[in-house]
Simulated assay, not measured.
Amino acid sequence: MSRTEAGGYRERLLAAAVSCLRDKGYARTTARDLVAASGTNLASIGYHFGGKDALLNEAIIGCFERWTERVEEEIFGSAPGSPRELLERAMVALVDVFEEMRPQLVVCVEGFPAALREDALRDKLAGAYARARQAGVEMLRRAGAGLGPDSPVTAEALVSVLIAISDGLMLQWLLDPASTPDARQVVDALAALSAFAG
């Protein structure tokens, strides 16, 4: 297999894995499904990923990591703003994209139950969340929104809470899109909650 062909197979397999995860789910996707969807062969799965589960795991992690990159692009793609404006941009990239990103959301959600039973996927997802938290902390620093030494919360905790809000809203949206708040409502709700915590 040539180098170009090999690279093409890997990308085709990853795209097929995303499609199969979205349409059939983690447990019901077979190696033959992946081969049919990618136009490759069974040996290419082992050659590039070591096996079907490793390929599916890589596809799930890829969806998480592309989403993190998208959030950073949204926050810093225009002129700097106030901390609230930056938070609104982050929420737009985390929440207001659900309709557009529905296939990727399904893939992300498919990863959670599988990770409860498969150590390798659980470790990969934990690593993806760790990288997302670190990226969020770096975004806070880059935005000049560092938390002072007297802050009752660390940057890591703040980013973890924002990720939890996004994950929770993602699940709500997949079940009931009409009842899920948009980015501006989320930011307004956070501001209202601060009055209780203040």
Score class of each variant (00 low, 15 high):
Pro181Tyr: 12
Asp188Val: 01
Arg142His: 10
Ile45Thr: 04
Val106Asp: 04
Arg184Pro: 01
Arg117Met: 12
Ala189Asn: 06
Leu193Gln: 15
Lys124Gly: 15
Glu58Gln: 15
Leu42Phe: 14
Leu14Gln: 08
Gly146Arg: 07
Ala6Tyr: 15
Ala143Leu: 03
Asp167Arg: 06
Ile60Trp: 03
Leu121Phe: 10
Val97His: 01
Val35Ser: 02
Glu74Met: 10
His48Asn: 12
Glu58Arg: 15
Ala17Ser: 13
Ser82Arg: 07
Ala192Asn: 08
Gly136Met: 01
Ala178Tyr: 11
Ser19Thr: 12
Asn41Trp: 14
Ala79Gln: 10
Cys20Met: 14
Val186Phe: 05
Lys52Thr: 13
Leu42Ile: 15
Phe98Leu: 00
Ser19Lys: 13
Gly148Gln: 04
Thr30Asp: 12
Ala90Leu: 09
Cys63Asp: 04
Thr180Pro: 03
Gly50Thr: 03
Ser38Asn: 13
Ala31Asn: 13
Leu140Lys: 00
Thr154Cys: 06
Ala143Lys: 02
Ala17Met: 12
Glu11Ser: 08
Cys108Lys: 09
Leu34Gln: 08
Ala59His: 05
Leu121Arg: 09
Trp67Gly: 05
Pro152Ile: 02
Arg122Pro: 07
Ser78Val: 12
Leu105Lys: 06
Ala164Asn: 08
Asp150Tyr: 11
Ala27Cys: 07
Glu88Leu: 13
Gly77Tyr: 12
Pro113Gly: 11
Glu5Gln: 14
Val161Trp: 02
Leu56Met: 14
Ala90His: 02
Phe49Asp: 08
Ser179Tyr: 13
Gly168Phe: 05
Ile163Glu: 00
Glu69Gly: 14
Val107Pro: 03
Arg131Asp: 03
Leu158Glu: 03
Lys52Pro: 08
Leu94Ala: 08
Gly111His: 11
Arg102Phe: 13
Val97Lys: 00
Thr30Met: 11
Ser82Val: 03
Arg102Pro: 11
Ala115Cys: 12
Leu175Met: 15
Arg70Lys: 05
Asp33Val: 07
Leu87Val: 02
Lys24Phe: 08
